[in-house]
Design a protein around this nucleic acid. Structure first.
Lengths: 248, 248
DNA sequence: TATCATTGTGTCAAGGCGACACAATCAATG
DNA sequence: CATTGATTGTGTCGCCTTGACACAATGATA
């Protein structure tokens, strides 16, 4: 592909999307008792970033976020929550743009000022196979504390998104989207501990979660460990939905 | 002003702002023991709407919201909170646009699809003198239940904004921005009741608010009523700020 | 069969919150 | 000027939630 073709491609992309507006997604997964975030590296540059993209004229912002995530995770109907829109003047910086766009004629076409709508996604870690495309050199899970320096304000976006997720979990049993189909109570507890960043009391955690009346205890038990075999649970989708609809 | 001049004006406006992106503001005030919202009527059309505007290329979205509100309320440094970004495809509809823009050539220039960032503002009702400009025929306070049918999805925006405000007040003593400098405890209670839409117990309300340690009880008492004269309080700004910075 | 880390469950005390009671007060009333 | 009545300030009681902790049950391993 020569430079003229690339210019045409970029021109086309901008013509069919909302100019100066983008979506950034934080994809949360849970693995090895820790919260992981999907981050990707642009082309062959040293530019890590959150999964992001532009919004087509003929799609809602929610649909746009779903599409962007489908491209990265090949998962449909992902749980998505909009948490904040970032619109400071200095949130994008020209150095990061230059790193990503080594061609001055292309760089010229990129809007210098961009506003971005932040979404976070909750996905089941094991079901995701990070996908590459022609603009992506790498796509990896990172622990929250191991995140690389990312472009623009993406590290700050993660910070705000994490706060938002933590605020949610105080009221909601978020695990539904992050855990596998079946799980044990200690596993669910580790998820909550990972999100909150602090240990929880086993007994009280169990009582609280069960009081929500959204879990079903299955017949089977999880054997294999050299310990008392824990019960296996699963979320009851209808009851979970009902729980979300309550007061507040 | 002839139609060509108007076309130029609109062209200029769009050239200096973020296309397809706007800001809608809910201005909350408190008066007569009820929550009021500022709504304005466009030109001489029957088109009520929330205060709104476009975002200049050289201002942050927060600044844009402040500027838009300054034009309506002539208040500076208003308390503003971003609560949601609205981006459904059908949120704007062509009939409302036609009502507002009777000139086909102008209507042609208006983006058919628009995304809007929702902010709510908390202001002291008595300090606001609703301002008109050349595009605004009327600017009035409405009770939450007396709001007129507004254009686009503005009624829905109010609904979401109100929910957001109610969620806040469960944790925060929001009155700081809505009450006058000094006030009595029953007055503050009426504010909370107006926002929550349900009566609160006097004794418990007082205990809870005072426990936050953000109010100062003044020497004076509020006389005039044929009853026991209540104490007069005021917010201690530093302590209020400190309270906001706490855990969650 | 004993061991031991892990899990399920019960108990108990402290704190928070709602419901309610009672005293204090101030203008209006006669 | 004493009485009245609505309103306000404050204390108390009991329930429920939550946190802290204890103890029994379990199952692979040695």
């Amino acid at each position: 592909m020569n430079i003229e073709e690339l210019e045409d491609l970029v021109r086309q992309m901008y013509a069919s999307t909302m100019p100066g507006l983008s979506i950034d997604c934080i994809v949360f997964g849970f693995h090895d008792s820790a919260i992981k975030i999907l981050s990707l590296r642009f082309n062959n540059a040293d530019a890590w970033m959150l999964p992001n993209g532009l919004i087509f004229h003929k799609e809602s912002i929610q649909q746009a976020a779903q599409r962007i995530l489908l491209e990265r995770t090949s998962l449909k109907d992902i749980f998505l929550k909009q948490f904040y829109t970032f619109g400071d003047l200095d949130r994008t910086n020209i150095e990061d743009m230059k790193t990503m766009m080594p061609f001055p004629s292309i760089l010229e076409m990129v809007p210098k000022r961009a506003i971005s709508i932040g979404y976070y996604a909750l996905v089941e870690h094991s079901k995701v196979q990070p996908q590459l495309d022609f603009m992506t050199a790498e796509c990896r899970w990172f622990g929250v504390d191991e995140l690389p320096k990312m472009i623009f304000d993406h590290n700050k976006i993660v910070e705000i998104g994490l706060k938002s997720l933590r605020a949610q979990i105080d009221h909601l049993p978020i695990g539904y989207h992050l855990m596998p189909e079946t799980f044990t109570m200690p596993e669910l507890q580790k998820l909550h501990e990972a999100i909150l960043g602090e240990p929880l009391d086993r007994a009280n955690f169990q009582k609280r979660i069960l009081s929500y009346d959204i879990l079903e205890r299955l017949e089977e038990r999880r054997t294999g460990g050299a310990h008392k075999s824990p019960y296996v649970y699963r979320f009851i989708p209808e009851k979970y939905e009902a729980f979300l609809q309550r007061e507040f």
